[in-house]
Structure formats: C-alpha cells, structure tokens
Amino acid sequence: SDGDWICPDKKCGNVNFARRTSCNRCG
C-alpha cells in the first residue's frame, strides 16, 4: 500500500508497513 517501504538491508529486503519506523523482520 501507499507509503510502504522495503528494508534497505540487502540481506533482508522485507516490505514494511508505512507506519513502521524500523524493519519488522530485522529491526
């Protein structure tokens, strides 16, 4: 959805909800 972002860590790449301020997978 709008504002969702992909974790910049190449080893992670998790797609996070826009409301999250840190990655839901790797923190």
Rank of each mutant, 00 (worst) to 15 (best):
V15K: 04
T21Q: 13
G27K: 07
F17C: 13
C7P: 04
D2H: 09
V15C: 10
G3M: 15
C12A: 04
K11T: 13
D9R: 08
G27S: 04
R25L: 09
D4I: 13
N24A: 14
D4M: 02
T21M: 11
S22E: 13
N24H: 13
G3K: 06
G13T: 08
C7Q: 02
N24D: 12
R19G: 12
T21S: 10
F17P: 12
D2F: 12
D4H: 09
V15I: 07
R25V: 11
W5M: 10
N14D: 07
W5G: 02
V15S: 10
N14W: 06
C12R: 02
N16E: 04
N14V: 06
N16Q: 04
N14C: 05
C26I: 00
K11P: 09
C12P: 00
D9E: 08
R20F: 05
N24R: 12
N24S: 14
S22T: 15
N24E: 15
D4F: 11
G27V: 04
I6K: 02
C7S: 03
P8D: 03
F17H: 13
G3I: 11
G3T: 15
D2R: 08
A18C: 00
T21H: 12
G3V: 15
R19K: 13
C23D: 06
A18T: 08
T21G: 08
N14G: 07
T21F: 14
C26P: 01
N14E: 11
R20E: 14
K11L: 08
D2Y: 15
G3P: 01
R25A: 11
F17V: 12
F17W: 10
V15W: 08
T21V: 06
G27R: 05
K10I: 06
W5N: 01
P8I: 00
C23T: 06
T21L: 11
W5R: 02
N14P: 01
R19C: 01
C7M: 03
T21E: 12
C7H: 00
P8R: 03
D4W: 03
N24I: 10
V15G: 06
I6F: 07
C26Q: 03
D9Y: 06
R20A: 14
D2V: 06
G3W: 14
N24G: 14
K11E: 00
C7N: 04
C12W: 00
A18V: 08
N14M: 07
W5E: 03
C26Y: 00
R19A: 12
K10S: 13
S1G: 15
S22Q: 08
G13R: 06
R20C: 08
W5Q: 02
W5F: 01
R20Q: 15
C26V: 01
D4C: 01
D9P: 06
R20V: 13
C26W: 01
C12I: 13
A18S: 09
C23E: 07
C7W: 00
C7R: 05
C23M: 02
C23H: 08
C26H: 02
V15F: 08
C26S: 03
S1Y: 10
C7K: 05
R19F: 05
C7F: 01
G13Q: 13
G3F: 14
S22G: 11
N16V: 03
D9M: 15
P8G: 02
C26K: 01
G13H: 06
S1N: 15
S1P: 00
P8A: 01
N24Q: 13
I6D: 08
N16W: 01
D2T: 15
D9N: 13
N16F: 03
K11D: 12
R19H: 15
S22D: 14
K11G: 08
K10P: 14
A18H: 12
K10F: 08
G27C: 07
S22W: 05
C12N: 02
F17A: 10
A18P: 06
R25D: 11
I6H: 05
F17E: 14
T21A: 10
D4V: 11
S22L: 07
N16I: 03
G27D: 05
G13L: 14
N14R: 06
C7E: 01
D4L: 06
R20T: 13
G13S: 05
R25T: 10
R19D: 12
R19W: 09
F17T: 15
C12H: 03
I6S: 07
R19E: 15
R19Q: 11
D4P: 05
P8F: 01
T21D: 09
G3L: 12
F17N: 14
N24Y: 09
G3R: 15
K10L: 06
F17R: 13
D4T: 14
D9T: 08
A18E: 12
W5C: 01
R25W: 09
C7T: 01
N16M: 00
R25C: 07
I6L: 15
S1F: 08
D2G: 08
K11S: 07
G13W: 04
C7V: 02
C23L: 00
C12E: 04
C26F: 00
C12L: 03
K10H: 09
A18G: 11
A18Q: 09
N24F: 11
C23G: 03
S22A: 13
C23I: 04
D2N: 07
R25H: 04
C7A: 03
W5L: 01
N24C: 09
N16R: 02
C7D: 03
P8E: 05
C26D: 09
N16P: 03
D4S: 14
G3E: 14
D2L: 11
K10T: 10
K10R: 11
F17G: 14
C12M: 07
F17M: 15
C23W: 00
G13P: 03
R19V: 10
C12V: 05
A18F: 06
I6G: 00
D9L: 04
C7L: 01
G3D: 14
R19Y: 03
I6E: 05
R25F: 08
K10N: 10
P8T: 05
G27W: 04
C23V: 02
G13A: 14
G13E: 02
R19M: 06
S1V: 11
P8V: 00
V15E: 10
C12K: 06
N16D: 05
K11W: 03
D4R: 07
K10M: 14
N16T: 04
G27L: 02
N14F: 15
S22P: 07
R20N: 07
S22C: 14
D9W: 04
C23R: 00
N16Y: 05
R20I: 00
C23Q: 06
S1T: 15
D9A: 08
K10V: 05
P8W: 00
K11C: 05
N24V: 12
A18W: 07
N24M: 09
R20D: 11
R20M: 12
D2S: 14
R19S: 09
C7Y: 02
D2I: 15
G27P: 03
I6V: 11
V15L: 07
R19N: 15
I6N: 07
C12Q: 05
C7I: 02
D4Y: 11
C12D: 05
C26T: 02
C7G: 02
W5I: 01
N14Q: 07
R19L: 07
F17I: 10
F17Y: 15
R25G: 13
N14S: 07
S1K: 15
T21P: 10
D9S: 08
N24P: 09
N14I: 02
N16C: 04
G27T: 04
P8M: 05
S22H: 01
A18M: 12
T21W: 08
K11V: 09
D4E: 03
V15R: 10
S22V: 10
D9I: 10
R20S: 10
I6Q: 15
K10D: 14
I6T: 15
V15A: 09
N16A: 02
D4Q: 00
P8Q: 09
N16S: 01
I6C: 03
C12T: 04
D4G: 09
G3S: 13
R20W: 12
P8C: 01
N14H: 15
R25Q: 13
A18R: 06
R25P: 03
N16L: 01
K10W: 10
D9H: 04
G27E: 08
G13K: 02
F17Q: 14
F17D: 14
C23N: 08
N14A: 08
R20Y: 07
N14L: 05
G3C: 12
K11Y: 08
C23S: 04
N24T: 15
I6Y: 06
G3A: 10
T21I: 06
W5T: 02
C23A: 04
T21C: 11
C26N: 04
D9C: 00
R20H: 09
R19P: 11
D9V: 10
C23K: 02
K11H: 11
R19T: 13
C12G: 04
K11A: 13
S22Y: 13
W5D: 00
N14K: 10
F17S: 14
P8Y: 04
N16H: 02
W5V: 00
P8N: 02
D2P: 05
P8K: 09
S22K: 11
K11Q: 10
V15T: 13
D9F: 05
C26E: 05
K11N: 12
I6R: 12
K11M: 13
S1I: 15
G13Y: 01
D4N: 14
C12F: 05
K10Y: 06
V15P: 07
S22I: 07
A18I: 06
N14T: 00
S22R: 12
G27A: 06
S22M: 11
G13C: 09
R25K: 11
K11R: 07
G13V: 04
V15D: 08
R25N: 08
G27Q: 09
D2M: 13
S1W: 01
C26R: 01
C26G: 03
P8S: 03
R25Y: 00
N24W: 09
A18D: 06
N16K: 04
T21N: 14
S22F: 07
F17K: 14
N24L: 13
T21R: 12
K10G: 10
P8H: 05
D2A: 11
N14Y: 15
T21K: 10
P8L: 05
W5H: 00
D2C: 11
A18L: 06
V15M: 09
R25S: 10
S22N: 14
R25M: 11
C12Y: 01
N16G: 03
W5P: 03
R20P: 09
D9G: 04
S1C: 12
W5A: 00
W5S: 04
R19I: 00
N24K: 12
F17L: 11
R20K: 13
D4A: 08
R25E: 12
G13M: 10
C23P: 01
C26M: 02
R20G: 12
C12S: 04
K10C: 03
G3N: 13
C26L: 01
D4K: 09
C26A: 02
A18K: 11
V15Q: 12
W5K: 00
R20L: 12
K11I: 07
K11F: 09
